[in-house]
Structure formats: structure tokens, C-alpha cells
């Protein structure tokens, strides 16, 4: 993945993704990493506007129009880009300004305070399970009394292989 220092023209990744749109959210499955993400409305809109041509200020402007709100702080866009980048949903890595990097959702809420006119962008992720992980059997290292209980079928000295 390339580094887009400053993230001037972020572009959403499209290859290797399964995308499902819900009324206020977007679900994304990353086939390369077997991870699934749920983007809330703000994160989903920012991701949608990452067309490789729009800058952070222009994305903020489009957010204002789409959500019919007053001025959207650019910090909101940067925060969303940071999360999307961390989850490999952008073509190039985006490095948010130093002030915002490593900021948690709670920090973001505090920084935006009452001035926030849109929901804080949130990307929730899970690692998709392997078939055995999603089944009724014990995973590796779990205590067992017989191989039948283990997904591997092997119970070695009281713990599943």
C-alpha cells in the first residue's frame, strides 16, 4: 500500500471487497483479510466521497450538503480517513495531521464537543471466523477430555490441539 502523506486526494479501495448498503450504514467485507466492517452513516459518506479527486475540505463540504447541516469540522473527515486507512479501505494510507493521529472516539467527541453537527464517524470491525471457529467445538488450547470435543479432533493431555 502506498503512503499518501497528508491524504490530499484519498481514494476508496474497491478491489477485493464485498459491499452491502443498509439504510444508514454500509457493510464491507474484505476478502483479502477476511475482515468485516460496519461503517456508520458519517464514515460511509466520507468513504463514498473518497474518489481520488476530492480534498478533505471538499469532502467536508459535501458532508454538509448531504446531511443538511451547518459547517462540518474537517477534523471529522480526518478522523474518518484515519479509521478507513487503518482498516485498509483506502487505496493509499492516509496520515492525519499530528494533532489528530491516535485520537480515540472519546477524544474526538471531546474535541468536537457541542459543536459537532454530525455523528462521529465509526468503523466497527470483526475478523470473520473459520468454519471451525463458528461451530460447536472447542478451539485450540481449550480444556478437553476427548478428541470429539475439539475442532481439531485432537485432545492432547487435557487441552485441544
Amino acid at each position: 500500500m502506498k503512503q499518501n502523506v497528508g491524504g490530499r486526494f484519498p481514494r476508496a479501495r474497491t478491489e477485493g471487497l464485498v459491499i452491502q448498503e443498509l439504510p444508514d450504514e454500509v457493510l464491507v467485507y474484505d476478502r483479502e483479510r477476511d475482515k468485516a466492517h460496519c461503517l456508520n452513516q458519517t464514515a460511509a459518506l466520507v468513504w463514498k466521497y473518497c474518489d481520488g479527486k476530492s480534498t478533505v475540505p471538499s469532502i467536508a463540504k459535501r458532508l454538509e450538503q448531504d446531511l443538511k447541516t451547518e459547517t462540518v469540522d474537517e477534523k471529522v473527515v480526518w478522523y474518518a480517513l484515519g479509521q478507513l486507512s487503518k482498516d485498509h479501505l483506502l487505496e493509499e494510507n492516509v496520515t492525519p495531521p499530528a494533532l489528530l493521529s491516535g485520537m480515540s472516539r472519546r477524544d474526538m467527541v471531546r474535541v468536537l464537543g457541542l459543536a459537532a453537527v454530525v455523528a462521529v464517524p465509526v468503523v466497527t470491525s470483526i475478523v470473520a471466523p473459520t468454519p471451525a471457529q463458528a461451530a460447536t467445538c472447542l478451539g485450540s488450547g481449550s480444556p478437553c477430555t476427548g478428541g470429539v470435543q475439539c475442532c481439531s479432533g485432537i485432545c492432547n493431555t487435557g487441552s485441544c490441539a
Binding site: 452491502q20 443498509l22 444508514d24 450504514e25 454500509v26 457493510l27 477476511d34 468485516a36 460496519c38 461503517l39 456508520n40 466497527t124 470483526i126 470473520a128 471466523p129 473459520t130 468454519p131 463458528a134 461451530a135
Partner: peptide, 15 residues
Amino acid sequence: GQAVLALLANTVSAR
């Protein structure tokens, strides 16, 4: 969306 993720985390054919 969160509910779908919770279900997908337990789906045998997810991958």
C-alpha cells in the same frame, strides 16, 4: 449493521 456483524462473527460460511 452491528447486528449483522454479530451474526457474521458466528457464520460458518462467512469466509
